[in-house]
């Protein structure tokens, strides 16, 4: 899998998906001020991880599956879920992707191969291995993409699953998005490898599977690295752990507060907790979305007029999603009891 195989059209597709994720999530964030009270509970944004999400899912083909965490808006968007249904879900409405029952943390779109998310850190990793077992039995070369954060690699579920997946040569790609922070804890404060100056991908060594670290802010680098892992999995040679280094550009989530306290996004923990404004501003300067736009324009893949036009089209698409979601009714009350059993 080489970058040469990525023609101009495909590169523009990658940028388009990155920008759609960014625009969608900016609107989610803005909802807290534009329409107070419309979003409840806890939402988590993937700004800064778009290149990693889209670069990885560029390899997704029909029959594959993906699972992720509560920071989940980007995956279904990339896989083709309707942003109107996604926003309606975030707003708790009847037309939501999950009928208003799951909300921002639990987007699921089985038709598009997005099997869902867990709000419990690390809990989705074994689910992905289970789905990979099913893929292995289908013998069609299907692969399962498993997305989780650096924090999850401190869970037993991570270690137990990597061992089994490697032992059984399950066709899975474990993409660990290392964004440097577990809420207000830095990776070096909670990870022995990080504290020793090692990449987190070394954890793979313990379970005899390849472990690689990639710059997750570079979609082409992610495309290459995950591509190799996907190829390996499709060929029946087993799973790979990819540590994709990103920087979360928003705080962990909106503030956690009981009803009555207006929700909003606080400042990033690097500044609010650790006073490391420099670190945060450097990350902002490396923002993967405008950076890839620059790469494509410099490379002659896209003109800046075309890029502007694309941005305007996406803004319109997401604006439409917001108005649709605001107009969508709340679900029927009795539907709250409908899906406890199959």
């Amino acid at each position: 899998m080489s970058v040469q195989s990525l023609n101009a059209e495909r590169q523009v597709w990658i940028y388009t998906q990155m920008l759609r994720i960014r625009t969608f999530e900016e609107r989610v964030k803005r909802t807290f001020t534009d329409h107070p009270g419309v979003i409840r509970g806890h939402t988590h944004l993937a700004d800064g991880a778009e290149a990693s999400i889209v670069g990885s899912l560029s390899h997704f083909r029909e029959g594959d599956a993906a699972l992720a965490t509560y920071r989940c808006h980007g995956y279904p968007l990339t896989l083709g879920s309707d942003p109107k249904a996604m926003m309606a879900e975030v707003y708790g409405r009847a037309d939501g992707l999950c009928k208003g029952l799951g909300g921002s943390m639990h987007l699921t779109d089985v038709k598009r191969g997005f099997l869902g998310t867990s709000g419990i850190v690390g809990a989705g990793i074994p689910h992905a291995a289970g789905a990979a077992w099913a893929a292995q039995l289908r013998k069609r070369g299907d692969v399962v993409f498993c997305f989780f954060g650096d924090g999850a690699s401190k869970q037993g579920a991570f270690h137990e699953t990597l061992n089994i997946a490697s032992l059984w040569k399950l066709p899975a790609v474990f993409v660990m998005e290392n964004n440097g922070y577990n809420v207000v804890t830095t990776t070096a404060q909670e990870d022995a490898n990080a504290a020793a100056g090692e990449p987190l991908s070394v954890k793979a060594k313990a379970y005899a599977l390849p472990g690689v670290t990639v710059d997750g802010t570079d979609p082409l680098a992610v495309y290459r690295t995950v591509g190799e892992a996907v190829e390996r999995a499709r060929a029946g040679r087993g799973p790979t752990l990819v540590e994709s280094k990103v920087y979360r550009l928003s705080a962990h989530g909106n503030i956690i507060a009981p009803p009555g306290v207006p929700l909003h996004y606080p400042e990033h923990e690097a500044i609010a907790v650790f006073g490391k404004r420099e670190e945060y501003e450097a990350a902002l300067r490396g923002d993967p979305v405008p950076r890839f736009r620059g790469t494509l324009i410099l490379g002659g893949v896209l003109t800046s007029a075309q890029a502007d036009e694309l941005a305007a089209r996406i803004a319109g698409e997401i604006e439409e999603a917001v108005s649709f979601a605001l107009k969508s009714p709340f679900p029927k009350l009795e539907s709250a009891l409908e899906y406890n059993y199959a």
Partner: peptide, 15 residues
């Protein structure tokens, strides 16, 4: 009610 708690506000109040 014997159910998982739904996300949507009116449904949550309902159960």
């Amino acid at each position: 009610a014997d159910t998982t708690i739904p996300y949507s506000e009116p449904l949550e109040a309902y159960v």
